[in-house]
Amino acid sequence: MIGFINLYKEKGVTSFSNINRLSKILGGCKVGHTGTLDPIAEGVLPVCLNEATKLASYLIAEDKEYLAGAVLGFKTDSYDTTGSLVAEGDGRIPSEEEIQKIINNLVGEVELEIPAFSAVNIKGKRAYELARKGLIENAGMRKSIIYDIKLVEYSYPNLTISLKVEKGTYVRSIINKIGEMLGTFGTMNKLLRVRSGFFHVDTALTVEEIGLMYRNRNYDFLIPVNRVLNWSRVIVKDQFVDMVRNGISIKRVNYKYIPDNLTEMVFVTDSKGVVLSIAERSEGEIPFKNIRVFKNENFKI
């Protein structure tokens, strides 16, 4: 099996444990995920199988959509309710108008604190390792883009927001910033990843659902690579297939077929649809430069 799975990660378990269980259910095949969800979070976790794991970076780069819940009035060291209390507000109850104004001002590029309890690398150490020893309060600052953010519901001390953000954005950091701007503090208490690029929560499947389908020989959970990565396909002449498999970027005349409307990234295949490489467009005599080579005859599009 080669392709992607739209996995629903359930609350209270780690992304890693989900991947391990899925690998065992699918007979020990190579499984990788694209972007960890914290144990408190649930929702879409795109998964790559076998050769598709080599394409994970192209899924990680996609924008994300979330539905997040928060409690105002206190702050923890992890910016969510799994952490330890570090500060409390003065009991002031902000109005819905105040919250709406602050949220509106966050759209665009914003600088956010990276939570101390995160996997960010600091001088060869994971931030959470340093945080557990009390050596850091946060893991530095990071600029992120918030494309859209809306107040869904508010009844003090609870609020719910929906948001669309770029990759690598910590939603709990956004909630922490909202709390600080309100002067009341705020802590995330729930998080649902609604979308990650192509993958949407409405079609996500749990490990148990995938396991049942697999045992019944129903493989509809497997999403073809070219359905997710909507790249052009170019076809190599038979006598040049081995050259591409060996990592050589070949000349234009050595291609059997090149479509008119090309995407920036392409699948390079043989005449039977076997993927030889993924490549990026280039100028001149060599139209595509190989980025990654594949040697699995079962990887077809």
Results as ranks from 00 to 15, higher is better:
27 G>M: 09
228 V>M: 07
150 K>F: 05
94 P>W: 00
115 P>Q: 03
130 L>W: 10
205 L>F: 02
230 N>I: 12
154 Y>L: 12
260 D>F: 14
294 F>P: 02
90 D>V: 14
64 K>A: 03
221 F>M: 04
129 E>L: 11
207 V>C: 08
124 G>M: 08
63 D>I: 10
284 G>E: 02
119 A>V: 15
113 E>V: 14
202 D>Y: 04
188 M>E: 10
31 V>H: 05
254 N>D: 13
195 R>T: 13
39 P>A: 13
70 A>H: 10
23 S>E: 00
156 Y>G: 09
260 D>N: 11
225 V>E: 09
84 S>F: 04
257 Y>F: 15
168 G>P: 07
167 K>T: 04
3 G>K: 10
118 S>N: 01
50 N>Y: 01
175 I>S: 10
27 G>V: 06
199 F>Q: 06
75 K>C: 01
83 G>D: 13
158 N>H: 15
164 K>V: 11
290 N>A: 06
113 E>R: 12
142 R>F: 04
100 Q>H: 02
95 S>V: 10
180 E>G: 09
280 E>H: 12
225 V>M: 08
78 S>F: 12
53 T>A: 06
42 E>Q: 14
133 K>Y: 08
194 V>H: 03
212 L>H: 09
285 E>K: 07
296 N>P: 02
121 N>I: 11
171 V>P: 09
217 R>D: 15
69 G>T: 01
255 Y>T: 09
6 N>K: 00
93 I>C: 06
269 T>K: 07
272 K>P: 00
196 S>C: 15
195 R>Q: 13
94 P>E: 13
132 R>I: 03
82 T>S: 12
88 E>G: 04
2 I>N: 15
175 I>L: 15
55 L>P: 04
216 N>Q: 08
68 A>Q: 09
169 T>D: 10
209 E>A: 12
27 G>Q: 09
154 Y>C: 06
153 E>D: 15
161 I>E: 05
218 N>W: 14
282 S>D: 12
155 S>F: 07
79 Y>S: 07
221 F>Q: 06
61 A>G: 06
108 G>M: 01
201 V>K: 07
81 T>K: 07
253 V>Q: 10
209 E>G: 03
13 V>C: 13
22 L>Q: 02
224 P>S: 01
246 N>Y: 03
59 L>Y: 12
141 M>E: 11
150 K>S: 11
166 E>Y: 05
49 L>W: 11
116 A>L: 11
210 I>F: 11
186 G>W: 00
235 I>F: 08
255 Y>I: 10
123 K>Y: 02
179 G>K: 01
233 R>C: 14
2 I>F: 13
25 I>N: 01
197 G>H: 05
166 E>Q: 05
95 S>T: 13
73 G>F: 06
91 G>K: 12
164 K>N: 04
230 N>D: 08
236 V>R: 03
246 N>W: 00
53 T>W: 01
228 V>H: 03
261 N>K: 07
274 V>A: 14
193 R>N: 02
32 G>K: 12
121 N>W: 00
240 F>V: 08
81 T>H: 05
206 T>M: 00
27 G>Y: 04
110 V>F: 00
137 E>L: 04
264 E>Q: 14
123 K>M: 08
255 Y>K: 07
119 A>M: 09
